[in-house]
Design a protein around this nucleic acid. Structure first.
Lengths: 205, 205
DNA sequence: CCGTCAATTGACAGATTGTCAAGTAATTTA
DNA sequence: TAAATTACTTGACAATCTGTCAATTGACGG
């Protein structure tokens, strides 16, 4: 049908544009991507970008959501919910999220820079993603609490805040890029740290 | 003498401009300070800013250094070196740096945003400040090691990296602003966390 | 053959940084 | 007192980037 062709074609160029953003982000350390460069890489004119995305911010947010979808973040994070014990849940959550970060880091940097330069839409998009991530932290801490294995050093809310902070993209960036840790070392050390901070020995052990 | 008057007057306007930046930063959540607004607040014309600072980046870096000097960061961090035990040193360092962060947070945000938008001079200025801060982390971890109280969970370099990351401005921002922790709670919890992560019980206790 | 629609092209407004040249007002120097 | 110096002002302008608009092109379906 006609409508099908239209929507297919439309979404085709949209995808090419988002891929262009991702390819640019992968190629350059710049976070200040210019519309003209994105257009060039997508093989269309700069003005044509505005036929698909209202603003630069819109385009960058859409690209972020696109990556989330493509990498199926929801499913990967949800998998950690199947873990039986609180400890296992903490570990699998660190695995799931910690290994997700490098996949979104490129576009996340761009979105973060946009947020930090005062863009409210970008801030809202980023904060909503981080709120979703916090859910997993809450769940992991709650599971520990249920098992009676949550350290008494912090009330539940504080423990969640701390875990949430430890798992931030900025910390991943600092440890892997600034400190040179491998991804494997990052994951391993975060698991160790989280256990030291939040998990106490099982009762009657 | 003539030269004296000149340098006094010149440095007077320079100071007014830097104060204008700080006052703007305190007033607005914006990191994208415009030259015209800075000039207005300093009571001079926009173009006159360039008589004192070569570029916007230069001005913002100079303001950061000015705050460092005014708040005497060096002296405050150096004080932690007088602590006797490694444990005390860790605590006093967290106190010194952790309580310094809120004083520089405003201008630090601006410099960080500049760095993250790809400004190399801003990045160099920021990185050099953070390298200086890392020195204190290294010293604290080394002091613990000397006392035989450093946790075997991490080699010295890893422990330093972790402490350095924990004390980052981004983490302070996340915990106090995003999570709503008071400054007092921030300091107290960071001390607890650092002990849990890095300090082991004294031998023969 | 005629619409429709994505995309192109050229032009332009608006914001912002940075530069330049000419002028002004106060202070210093001779 | 007259000339020179200094900090600053004002107006103009280049360059860059985002976003908008109007006119046009080219393909494709019916």
């Amino acid at each position: 049908m006609l409508l099908d062709n239209m929507s297919i074609k439309k979404s085709d160029t949209r995808s090419r544009v988002r891929d262009a953003v991702l390819s640019l982000v992968a190629d350059t350390p710049e976070t200040a991507l210019r519309m003209v460069d994105i257009a060039k890489r997508a093989g269309i004119s700069r003005q044509a970008l505005y036929l698909h995305f209202a603003t630069r911010t819109d385009l960058l947010i859409a690209t972020t959501l696109y990556v989330d979808e493509a990498k199926d973040i929801d499913a990967r994070l949800a998998a950690s919910r199947t873990a039986i014990s609180g400890e296992a849940r903490l570990d699998t959550y660190i695995d799931a999220w910690g290994n997700y970060i490098p996949e979104i880091y490129g576009i996340a940097r761009v979105l973060l820079a946009l947020k930090e330069s005062g863009d409210e839409a970008a801030a809202a998009a980023w904060d909503s993603r981080m709120a979703a991530m916090r859910e997993g932290c809450t769940a992991a801490i709650n599971a520990l609490k249920t098992d009676g294995r949550l350290s008494p050093a912090y009330p539940r809310g504080r423990a969640t805040d701390l875990l949430w902070t430890m798992l931030s993209v900025h910390n991943w960036e600092h440890l892997t890029i600034d400190c040179g840790w491998s991804q494997k070392a990052y994951i391993a050390n975060l698991k160790i740290s989280a256990r030291q901070l939040f998990v106490v020995a099982e009762e009657g052990e």
